[in-house]
Each structure stands twice: as structure tokens, then as C-alpha cells.
Design a binder for these strands. Sequence first.
DNA 1: GTCTATACTAAGATAGAC
DNA 2: GTCTATCTTAGTATAGAC
Lengths: 198, 198
Amino acid sequence: MTKESDALCATEKEIMHATHRALVNSGYAALSISRIADELDKAKSTIYHYYDSKDALLLQFLRFTVDRFEATINTSIGDDPKEDLNHIIRTLLPSQLTEEKRQLYCVLVTLSPQALERAIFREQFTEIDTRLATIIEKTVRRGVEADVFRDVDPTHAAEHILATIKGTMYGRLTTNREAATAAAKASLFSYIDSHLVS
Amino acid sequence: MTKESDALCATEKEIMHATHRALVNSGYAALSISRIADELDKAKSTIYHYYDSKDALLLQFLRFTVDRFEATINTSIGDDPKEDLNHIIRTLLPSQLTEEKRQLYCVLVTLSPQALERAIFREQFTEIDTRLATIIEKTVRRGVEADVFRDVDPTHAAEHILATIKGTMYGRLTTNREAATAAAKASLFSYIDSHLVS
DNA sequence: GTCTATACTAAGATAGAC
DNA sequence: GTCTATCTTAGTATAGAC
């Protein structure tokens, strides 16, 4: 399984990382080719050698970021569906968010408003969610078929769990409600324990 | 209970509505004073008569939008906690999103990345969530105390429900996964029915 | 493939007339 | 309170040398 971003040449990768830094340090509104060049050890015009326009660069950068995010989803399938679900939740909502993960999530939140209107951005966010939903759904389905879980609709339950994870992460990044993350996580575990487990 | 935006003069309100239109029609990156003036029946410099800077305008606009969002939260408290919860969910996740609500939610999604770094934006998003969480928590607590609900932690359950609502809405706005909204909602109702109700 | 230099455009913001 | 006109800065993008 080759990621598209593996096909990038060294300089293109440097540009992607510079864009990441510029976005994290200065936000979307201030993201300009000049600002990216500042984070890069190259001149502005070098960026135009690789990308026709700022828009083309941004599109590639979203692809680059989505690939990196998807690489962090550790799809280790064990033999205990409940433990697998808990593992997924702990991976996506770690108690301690590493700086690297925090930045990755921040970039996705920063780019997400583009998905409101631009189809090509929307499709990438759709891809992420479909991927996550599929992983969770398969795990729930295995649990239901193994009679470890109640006879719930795996699709419905998976979308519920995914929405809760996303809403929790989103709140964690955009509010000061530190206790909310732990509370939502606790209730999600309890839901799996009492509602899902038969 | 007076909203801060009630204190705005007629022209300021016009500017707020013009900003809303500019943001909805052209997105955050293209949001400029010139662009707002285009949506307004006034010159650019008139805007500077009311606001010292673009930043001051944006801050006021977030306040204006948060007030409008909070006005849509119909806190009708009935005598049936379960029905009240369902009502809250149906209000925040209506089956048919009116164009007006869709725009309001889109504006919040568009402004939310600002909350990642700017404390003053962050506080407003914190306010929204705290308000919603409190409403849900009170409802759950009433249900627990009336023995209609199981003896769950009202805070934990409320944060779970809120996160699910937010994640569902966020996905609805930023992806093409139309079925996901209905699935998450169905599972949330089922959670209330089977897990919360005793 | 990377640089310097530059054309062009649009932005934020202000001055001053009415 | 609203206008026209303007200053200044910064952006996107290109041309052409090395």
C-alpha cells in the first residue's frame, strides 16, 4: 500500500513540512507562499517550480496530511473486540496528546472549513471518516458475531462511537473544557461496557 | 437577559449581516473588509468608522454569531426527561437542516480554527459548549433523580451526548457521508432508550 | 533546480471633504 | 456618518540568469 506522498521528491517533502510549520505557527489566514518560504530554506520562486499555484500546493498538502493521519491509525486487530474498541478510542483520544499528534489534529481542524464548499477537500475528509467508521464497524461486527456484544446494528453503533470521538477531540482542541474530554471518554467506555457488551 | 448584540446600532448590525454573507459565500480566506463592503450598501471606510481593525470586527462577529446560535437553543423543560433529551437532540441535529441553521453552523465551523490559538475566540467556543453541556446535564440529572434514568454520572453522560451531537454535526457539514448522520442519531436515541432509561 | 528581481493586484488602514 | 481618494504593505505569480 503506497501512499501518494511517498511519491514526493525531497524538496516537495520539505515544502510540505514547511507548510505544516507555517500553518501551525501562524494559522490559515496568514498562510502565504512567502510565509511558507520563510519556514523553508529556499526562495519563494522555488515553490512555484513545484506547484502551479498556492491552491495546488494546498491540495497536495491536504493529501499529505491525510496520509500522515491515516498512518497513525494503528489497525491492530486482536481477538478481543471489546479490547480492540478500547484500543481504538485510546489511540484517537489519548490521555496525553503528544505535540506531534496535537499539531496533526490542529492542521485538520484548520483545513476542515474548506470542506464546507470545496468538493475536492470534502472528499478527503469523507475518506478519513469512512476509513475510521469501517475499522470501528468491523470490530463491532466481530463482537456481535462472536456474541461478545449485544445484537446492535454495527453501522449505527460505529457511527455513534466515531461521532463521539470526533466531537470529543474537536472540543478538546477548540475549548478550555479540560474535564469534558475525560468525562466523554469515561461515558464512552461505560457505553461499550454496559450497552454493547452482552 | 440582554444579548450583547442587542446593543449594536443599525449600521453595525448591517455590517454583521454583510460579514455573515461574505463568509458564507466566499469563505474565511477571502474575507476582507473590501469583500464585506461589497455585501454592504456602504463604503469600506464606513466599516472603519465602527471598527478599529479587521480583527476587532471579527471578534464582534464571533460574539454576534454565538448569540444567534444560543438563541436557537430552545430550552423548553418539560416533565419527561427522556423526551426533553430527545428534543434537544432533534433541535441540534434536525433531520432537515434549514438553510438558515446550516449557514449558522457553517460560520461556527469556519471560525473554529481561530480557537486553536487565540484565547479570546477559544473562550466563546467554551461558552457555547458549557451552555449546551449544562442544559443536557440538568436534564439527565432530573431523570436520574426521578428514577426514570439509571444511576449514571450526569456530567459524564452529558459530555458523551454533547460530543456525539457535535461530532455528528461536524461530519454532516464537512463530509459526503449522508447516511452517517442518521446512523449516529439512531444509535444515540437507542443509547438513551436502553442505557440511560432504567 | 534554485536564485534575484520585478510586474501586478489587492489588502488594511487613514485623510479629509461633505 | 458616509463618501472618495490615497498611502503602504504584502500577496500571487512570472521572467530570466546561473
